[in-house]
Structure formats: structure tokens, C-alpha cells
């Protein structure tokens, strides 16, 4: 075998090793979570509130809290993201659209904790207390640019001929967008929204000083709110073994939810393309 062929096979092996190595890490992380988490998982754990060490307790309020925070954030973040994404795809080719697109794209990379600091200054400092509202606003801010980007991509995929057909039939621009283009891109937009939900479901840092966390079931906007991620963090950094086990079990719940969403998205997009 000459030198060139040898280099070729060495490099092919190396890149394959990289790929399989990275996937091995994924399997190691997920496997360890499943292995550690499953033993502490029980019905009580899923419905109880956190209790002092030695008395059991669970993540019931944290699950409800995460869902409420997510629901509120989605209510604001998803429609706004879809609107901005639609704007960028349908009328965003001018200088203004270019600026908005650039800012939205750059916003995706801004650390989530910075949004938390901002909302802390705007909401928490003004009101004087940590609240569900502050947490939801933070998550919504994180969602907007993500939904914007996927919506723009999906709306742009809708063939021009469909728009032209509708316009030729005499439909006004806004009805073409609302009744033809958006429905055609709906699967893509929905999957983008789901990915954004999955992303903020895992957010921890910005919630530490906005929603803060709570040991009780709570449905009020103006009180601190528990979340799965913050609860995992609190359990994880505690010195108690029993709480570490709870951290793993809560992680198993969280990761299962997130992977579930990702796999559904994968399934939906696969059918389409």
C-alpha cells in the first residue's frame, strides 16, 4: 500500500472514530441517567413536593411549575416568533429585514443567563419579588429568536408558484400568507416551536433569579415558581446522597420529556422531506 492510500485509510478511520466516539459519549450520558434515575423513580416522587432530607419528597410541584412557565412563555414567544419569521420570509428582503434577521440570529447565541439578568432588572427589581411572571417572560425572550429562525426557513420553503397561483386568483397578499403559505409551512413551523419548547424546558440559569424556585404547588403569577431544572440543580449541589438520587430521577424525567419532543420532531420532519 503506498503512502497516499495509507494516509487515506488512517484519516477515514480517525474521522469514523470521532463520530462513533461522540455517539458513545451520548450513550454513556443517557445510559448513566437511566441507570441512576430509574431506582428513585416512583409515583410519590412524581407528585410530592420537596421535603427535608430523610422524609422523601419529590418533584410534583416542579413538574407543574415547569409546565406553567413553559405554557406562559409559549403563549407569548411562539406567536411573536411566527409573526417575525413570517415577516422575514415574506417581506424581509430589504435593509430593515436584513437588520432584523441579523439581530434575531445573533440573539439565539446570547447566553440565556443574560436574559435572566435583563428580566431581573426590568421585572424583579421593579416588583420587589421573584415571580412566575418574570420566569415566563425570560423564557419567552429566549424562545422568540429560535421560533423566528425556523419559521422563516419553513415559510421560505413554500414554493413561489403557490403564492402566485393564489394571487392570480385575486386573493390579497395577507390572505395568501395567512391561508395558503402559513398552512403549507405549518408542520415545519410547529416542529420549530416544539424545538424551542424543548430548549427552554432545559433552561436553568435564567430561572434562578427570575422564577427562583419554590417548595410548594403554586399557580400564582406573582409568586416564586418551582421548575424541574432548578429543582435538579438544588438537589444536585446538596451534600446529601439521598438528594443526589432525587436529582438523577428528576433528570431522567426531564431528559425523557426533551428527547421525546426531539424524536417526535424528527419523525414529523422526516415524513415531509
Amino acid at each position: 500500500m503506498d503512502k497516499r492510500r495509507l494516509t487515506n485509510s488512517i484519516m477515514t478511520t480517525l474521522t469514523a472514530a470521532c463520530a462513533f466516539g461522540v455517539i458513545t459519549v451520548l450513550i454513556l450520558v443517557l445510559g448513566y441517567i437511566a441507570f441512576q434515575g430509574i431506582s428513585s423513580l416512583s409515583w410519590q416522587f412524581l407528585v410530592q413536593t420537596p421535603k427535608p432530607v430523610g422524609e422523601g419528597g419529590g418533584i410534583g410541584n416542579a413538574i407543574v411549575g415547569s409546565l406553567i412557565l413553559l405554557g406562559l412563555a409559549s403563549l407569548v414567544g411562539i406567536p411573536l416568533g411566527i409573526a417575525i419569521g413570517t415577516y422575514l420570509a415574506e417581506m424581509g428582503d430589504g435593509w430593515f429585514g436584513t437588520i432584523v434577521r441579523f439581530v434575531a440570529d445573533t440573539m439565539i447565541g446570547i447566553p440565556s443567563i443574560v436574559f435572566g439578568v435583563f428580566v431581573y432588572a426590568v421585572v424583579v427589581l421593579q416588583q420587589g419579588y421573584f415571580s412566575t411572571l418574570a420566569g415566563a417572560v425570560t423564557l419567552a425572550l429566549i424562545m422568540i429568536p429560535i421560533v423566528t429562525r425556523t419559521t422563516e426557513e419553513m415559510v421560505r420553503l413554500v414554493p413561489k408558484s403557490m403564492r402566485e397561483g393564489a394571487l392570480a386568483l385575486g386573493a390579497p397578499q395577507w390572505r395568501v400568507t395567512k391561508d395558503i403559505v402559513i398552512p403549507a409551512a405549518m408542520t415545519g413551523i410547529a416542529t420549530g416551536a416544539m424545538l424551542a419548547v424543548a430548549r427552554v424546558l432545559g433552561e436553568t440559569a435564567p430561572l434562578l433569579f427570575t422564577a427562583f424556585g419554590s417548595r410548594f404547588y403554586n399557580i400564582y403569577l406573582d409568586e416564586p415558581m418551582a421548575s424541574l431544572t432548578v429543582q435538579i440543580y438544588n438537589y444536585a449541589i446538596s451534600p446529601f446522597e439521598e438528594w443526589h438520587a432525587k436529582a438523577w430521577a428528576a433528570t431522567l424525567v426531564l431528559v425523557t420529556l426533551i428527547l421525546f419532543i426531539n424524536i417526535i420532531v424528527r419523525f414529523l420532519t422526516r415524513q415531509k422531506y
Binding site: 463520530a19 454513556l28 436553568t204 428527547l259
Partner: peptide, 24 residues
Amino acid sequence: PMAFLVELLAAIPSVVYGLWAIFV
């Protein structure tokens, strides 16, 4: 499928990596 698995790594939340890092 391999690309999908690699992307899944990005879906795992930061706090979960933190937990894994502390104990593994």
C-alpha cells in the same frame, strides 16, 4: 441516524451535563 444522535447531544440541558460532570 448518526447525525441525529450527534444533534441529540445538543438537546441535553446544561444542568444535566453539570450533574453528570459532578458524579461521573
